[in-house]
Design a protein around this nucleic acid. Sequence first.
DNA 1: CGAAGGTAGTTGAACTTTGAACTATTGAGC
DNA 2: GCTCAATAGTTCAAAGTTCAACTACCTTCG
Lengths: 145, 145
Amino acid sequence: MTRWLTPDEQRSWRAFLEAHRQVFAQLERQLAADHDLVHGDYEILVRLSEAADRQLRMSELAEATLSSRSRLSHAVARLEGLGWVRREACPDDRRGAYAVLTDGGHAALARMAPGHVDAVRAALVDRLSADDFADLGRICAQLLD
Amino acid sequence: MTRWLTPDEQRSWRAFLEAHRQVFAQLERQLAADHDLVHGDYEILVRLSEAADRQLRMSELAEATLSSRSRLSHAVARLEGLGWVRREACPDDRRGAYAVLTDGGHAALARMAPGHVDAVRAALVDRLSADDFADLGRICAQLLD
DNA sequence: CGAAGGTAGTTGAACTTTGAACTATTGAGC
DNA sequence: GCTCAATAGTTCAAAGTTCAACTACCTTCG
C-alpha cells in the first residue's frame, strides 16, 4: 500500500524540488551568459583541475561528475574543441583513455571561477545562515550512499 | 574581491549538488521506465490536477512548473498527443490558451502517482529522519523568494 | 482613432542528453 | 592458450530543451 506524503512532507519535497531548480537555473544562466558553457562542462574542468596531474580516466571522470559515459564523451569532445581538455591514450589499458586538462583549460577555469563562486553565493550560500547552510550540507550528505 | 568558499562550504555545496542529482536521477529513471514520461511532464499533470477546473493558462502553468514558455509548448504538445491534456481557447484574452487536464490524463496520473510517491520516499523521504527532512524543507523554502 | 510597444503563445533550428548498438581490449575459467 | 563474458569508450539516432524569430492580440497614449 502506498504511503502518501503528508501535507508537510509534500511541502518539504516541493521546496527541495524548487529550491534546487531555482539555484541551478541561476548558475546555468550565469555560466551560459558569461562563458557560453553548461554547468556540467564546468564541473568536468573542476574535477580535472583537482586530480593528480590534472588528468583522470574517462570513466572516473564520468563517475565523479555523475554523468553517463556517453554524455562525457560528448562533453569532452566539446572541451577538446575549445582546447581546454586533451585526450591521451592509457598505457596500462589500451581500451582506456585519459582526459587531461590543458594549460589553456586551467587558465579558462581560473577566469571563470570567480564569477561562478559569486553566483553560488548569491543563489545559495548567502541566502542562508551559516548554521542552516551547514545543516543543508549535512542532510544532503546523508542522502548520498 | 571574490570570497572563495571555505572547505566546509565547498563540501556542503557539493553535497547539495550531488544529492539533488542522485535523487532526480532515480525519479527520472522510475518515471521513464514505468511510464515513459519525463519528470517535468509529470509535474505538469500534477499542477493541472490541483488547479481549479483542472485547467491553467499556459503561462501560469509555465511559472508553476518553473519552465520556459517554449518548453511548456512542446511538453503540452506531447501530452496532447497522449490525450492527457487538451488546449482550450481563452475567452477573455484571445491570445491566451488554457491547458486542461482530460479525464484520461487524470486517470493516468492516478495510475502513476503511487509508483512516483514510492520513488520519492525511497530516494529522499525515507532516507532521512523526520526532523532532518523537515529541516531540509524549511531550509529549501528559505531559498525561494 | 492609430501607432508603438508589450504580452501570450507557437515554431523551427541548434544544441545537449540519453540509450542502444558497436569496436576494441581485458580478464577469468577451463 | 582459447573461449567467452565483462569493461572502456565512442557513435548514432531519437528525444528534450533552449533560443531567437514569428504571429496574434492587447494596451497605452498622443
